[in-house]
Amino acid sequence: MLRSVTTRRSFLGRLPLAALALTVLATASGCGLLGGDDEGSGSGQGAGGVEKAKIKVGVLPVVDVAPFYLAIEQGYFKEQGLDVEAVVMASGQTSINGVLNGDLDIAFTAYPAPLLAQSKQLAEFKIVADALSAKPGHMVVVAPPNSSFRKPSDAPGKRIAITARRSFTDLAPMSVLKTLDVETSTINWVELPFPEMIPAMERGEVDGAVLVEPWVTTAMKQLGATPVFDAASGPTAEIPMSGYVAVGGAGKFATTSPNTLAAFQRGLAKAQAEATDRAKIEPMFVKYAKIDPQTAQLVTISTYSTSLEANRIQRVANLMEDFGVIKGHLDVSTMIQKSGR
């Protein structure tokens, strides 16, 4: 949230995946992916040295990237020989486009977008680092006070706000409801930006909303919203939500710069290991996510991973396959960026 909260429509890249796939296809078919001779690229600093010292990383204004900024402020990337420039993107789509067209070296994104693109063979995405996995309280289906939407079995026929179809905001709650034998086909999913969901509930235009932090906390403070059920529970408990990706293939950054990516991994992991300390991470929420200090103290801090495990991220691909977003089977292990020196 380096920008105003109105950018939340694109938070975590929760945009229509079909539209994103078309955008990725158009971008991939244009002028070379990650082509060009950027300053410092391919310079090769000997065994173990980074191939590109100055890199650009596209990020969104979300709580997921708080450790990334901590790594910059604490000099953890510089310790690894990297000069990392944070580029705040307007949406998940522009972040993905940036890494495809070479404006960015690494892009932060919600997992569904690159997984879908990979399944369609629109680009060779490499997952460089895991960002955030949802703890209880991070992604919650809420309802306004005095609503008849009080429990999961009330969901059929209700108007529930989400950011986009076939995103975490509808797939995760549908997965939870499926395990509870609750019919989801009659739910009226209403696409709205996060900032508009609270007013929509207040006006009675929707019966509930699927929110992520800090909007969960904000809805409870501003509206007195009550949780109906946790969308990251049961089959989706601790589900990986987001990560950092690069593009691989002949001549592409993820292929030509393994040591650079390994250095990025080490710097980020050091910061993510410290993200359990609220004293360190809350200032990042306030400074870069523009969350007010009072709300920042209440926001649920989810899991910031210090390792990159294919079997964990495979859960996202499996979720997408279960609901027909991905056709066939996607083996996430082929997307994991191998560490350099």
Rank of each mutant, 00 (worst) to 15 (best):
L2Y: 13
S4R: 11
V5H: 14
T7A: 14
R8A: 15
L15C: 09
L20F: 12
A21R: 14
V24N: 04
V24P: 00
A28W: 05
S29D: 09
G30W: 11
G32Q: 15
G36M: 09
D38P: 14
S41M: 12
G42W: 10
Q45R: 15
G46H: 09
V50C: 03
V50H: 00
K52N: 05
L60E: 12
V65C: 02
A66T: 14
G75C: 09
F77R: 04
Q80P: 09
E85S: 11
E85F: 05
M89F: 06
I96V: 14
L100Y: 04
T109G: 06
A113L: 10
L115F: 11
A117I: 02
L122M: 06
F125H: 00
K126W: 00
K126E: 09
A129L: 04
V141H: 10
P145K: 05
P145T: 07
N146F: 05
R150T: 15
K151N: 13
K151Y: 01
S153M: 07
S153G: 05
G157N: 06
I162M: 02
A164Q: 01
R166L: 13
D170C: 01
L171E: 04
A172T: 15
P173N: 08
T186C: 03
V190C: 01
V190T: 07
E191I: 01
P193Q: 04
M197K: 00
P199A: 03
W215P: 04
W215D: 08
V216H: 06
T217R: 13
K221M: 14
A225F: 05
D230N: 11
S233G: 07
S233L: 12
G234H: 07
T236C: 14
A237V: 12
S242W: 03
G248H: 07
G251C: 07
F253M: 04
T255N: 13
T256C: 12
N259I: 08
A273W: 09
A275R: 12
A275W: 08
D277M: 03
E282L: 08
K287W: 01
P293S: 14
T295P: 01
T295W: 05
A296P: 03
Q297G: 15
Q297I: 01
V299W: 09
T300H: 10
T303E: 06
S305N: 11
E309P: 09
A310H: 08
N311E: 15
I313L: 11
Q314H: 03
N318A: 14
F323K: 04
G328V: 00
D331N: 08
I336L: 04
I336C: 00
Q337M: 09
K338I: 08
S339R: 15
